[in-house]
Design a protein around this nucleic acid. Structure first.
Lengths: 345, 345
DNA sequence: TTTTAGCACTCGCCCAACGTGAGTGCTAAG
DNA sequence: CTTAGCACTCACGTTGGGCGAGTGCTAAAA
């Protein structure tokens, strides 16, 4: 599955060294520096090789008479290489323990994204996607002016709520009874099933003669309408952005940071983006591989976790010049840890 | 209540013009520019006056042969002046309407802070402080492994939740009954009262002989322990930060932004800071008036709203060079709008 | 054919010098 | 107390030259 067959082994090793050097020092890598890294070849040879690498698009020089800098394609080759010979790391036990102790899913996401950020020195995020949320518990609480607060607990203790203004008035007792009925009738069903069943039962003969049940079902219909656990996303470490300089021009840097901060603000957009990369376990998207132009200065490393019932994504986002090996290990081990926590729970 | 009696009326008007000019253009204000603003005096006179203003500490010059820039004290005088002759503005009706339609308090905060940010072009925040939260509704939901999800609805539809692991096991039915009992017993009481009463009832004679009630009360005790609605804070518009340059040196600018973004991340810290300024209705803290050194490049304008039961703060935060008149109107009118919404509800 | 030493060349970076002009402070007259 | 006039200051932008890291190329060596 080597994706870059045209490149001789030695060239690839040298490219990897170049990428690592650039990641570490942030300055264009010179042939002389590479020569000092013990490949047993002279700087002149390395210069020849670098010309070849440049022809293939793996590196570029910022200007004549400067060293080479990896392109996004160069990072890609480096990362692919990394993934080939990698032993899976395991998150520190205390990290897993802390995840385990988290009460709700939200809590755990928060811990996970924090840990992702802390360990990788990048922006960390964690995301719970809701595929077919299952009803655990429903509660109807009367507010003022006839409004009703609907509280939905779905699988994993996730809480969603909304306020409705029912067409007909319901008193506290009736709400209580309706909630009891709905809980016993629908617990364990997915929300889609619940909606389906509500419609069916409203049509059934016996419902027509049971006014109370009809009222309960109408209320339920309103309650469940549009009541869907929003994908929860937690983002942490945005301020780490400022530790980075992206380019020589401070203006460019600032513009880049602005777009990212804005993206962190409108989280829904980020959710959509992450969703695109989802599914394939560990996903790494580097710079210009992003569809969204705003993300092109960044790389995203994300891994989905899942135990069948619940699933989501944990990952980091940072500049294309990031410590991929570390970030990959962090994200991968975290997502495994989350899966284990889910399975044992 | 004029706080700066030593300064002649004309000097104050000129200072105000200088501050406005600086706010608008962001460049040191020259005597010539001021002369063009129709004070009927020549630039030479204005230069004399500016020397006086500088001696009093209201302005400074970045370097010899540059115009004057207001100091924080200068902004202070300007703002005090603004507050003296100000007619109270009222938020646009559609803004108030949108706040009114918000279901929960959180929703409303979100709208309010967004509106604060949008209208003032600054970072907007809204904060619900919880003084003596009143129990509206309590719910106990069994999770896996004997854990119980406690959901608390307090005044205004605010939802708080936590997960407990009770010492004794409870089944679904018993949880249901316990919740019913607690709701009927304690609805409308403040959380402090509830805790107090739980202790008392646990001591009462008859409880000793009613094992079920005792179990319910012990569960309640665990449930309410530390269950306090956290002050909710919503911050919006952080990316507007990047529209600003704070100083000539881009490094300083970046450092400043970093501290602020970090502060926006650790919201609890911001809550504490805002709490300090609370209470006095409209609070304006300018630059070096802040206790926290990290905040000294910024000004905070905040106003508390309250209807007796619920209270909180809405405000904006931005660079000391901000459009105070606009920001003050925005914040003040928003907080009035929120109060009205609360009262009518 | 590949590698290497040697060397001329390129070009970004640093710095110092300099002219420019906006804005001031001061003085002396109104 | 105000104002015209004027010398002075100083940040800013531009220019030009020296420096040096790093390259590309060529020709010899392996």
């Amino acid at each position: 599955m080597t994706r870059h067959p045209e490149l001789p082994e030695r060239d690839r090793r040298i490219l990897a060294a170049l990428v690592q050097g650039y990641i570490e020092h942030g300055e264009p890598v010179s042939s002389l520096w590479l020569a000092s890294r013990g490949f047993g070849v002279s700087s002149a040879t390395l210069r020849n090789i670098m010309v070849r690498l440049e022809e293939h698009g793996y590196v570029r020089q910022p200007h004549t008479s400067a060293g080479r800098v990896p392109t996004d394609l160069g990072y890609r080759l480096y990362v692919d290489q990394l993934l080939l010979d990698r032993r899976t790391a395991r998150a520190a036990p205390q990290v897993e323990e802390r995840l385990r102790r988290a009460g709700t899913v939200e809590d755990m996401l928060s811990h996970a994204s924090q840990e992702a950020s802390r360990a990788s020195h990048q922006i960390g995020f964690a995301l719970a996607t809701t595929t077919d949320a299952v009803l655990e518990h429903l509660d109807l609480v009367p507010l003022d002016a006839g409004r009703v607060l609907v509280i939905l607990v779905s699988s994993g203790g996730r809480i969603t709520h909304k306020v409705i203004e029912p067409a007909e008035p319901y008193d506290r007792d009736e709400l209580q009874r309706a909630a009891n009925y709905l809980n016993s009738a629908f617990k364990g069903h997915t929300l889609a099933e619940v909606r389906q069943e509500i419609v069916e039962r409203l049509r059934e003969e016996r419902t027509l003669y049971d006014a109370l049940m009809a009222r309960a079902l109408r209320l339920a219909s309103e309650s469940f309408d549009g009541l869907e656990p929003q994908p929860t996303i937690v983002i942490q470490g945005t301020s780490l952005l400022f530790e980075i300089e992206f380019s020589d021009h401070p203006e460019t840097t600032i513009a880049t940071m602005r777009t990212l901060v804005r993206m962190m603000e409108e989280k829904t957009r980020l959710v959509r983006l992450i969703d695109e990369y989802l599914g394939s376990g560990l996903a790494i998207v580097i710079g210009s591989e992003h569809v969204d132009p705003d993300l092109q200065p960044f790389s995203v490393i994300a891994s989905t976790y899942s135990d069948g019932r619940r699933s989501g994504t944990v990952g980091v986002i940072g500049p294309t010049r990031m410590r991929y090996s570390r970030a990959i290990n962090v994200v991968d081990s975290l997502s495994r840890a989350i899966s284990r926590v889910f399975e044992n729970a």
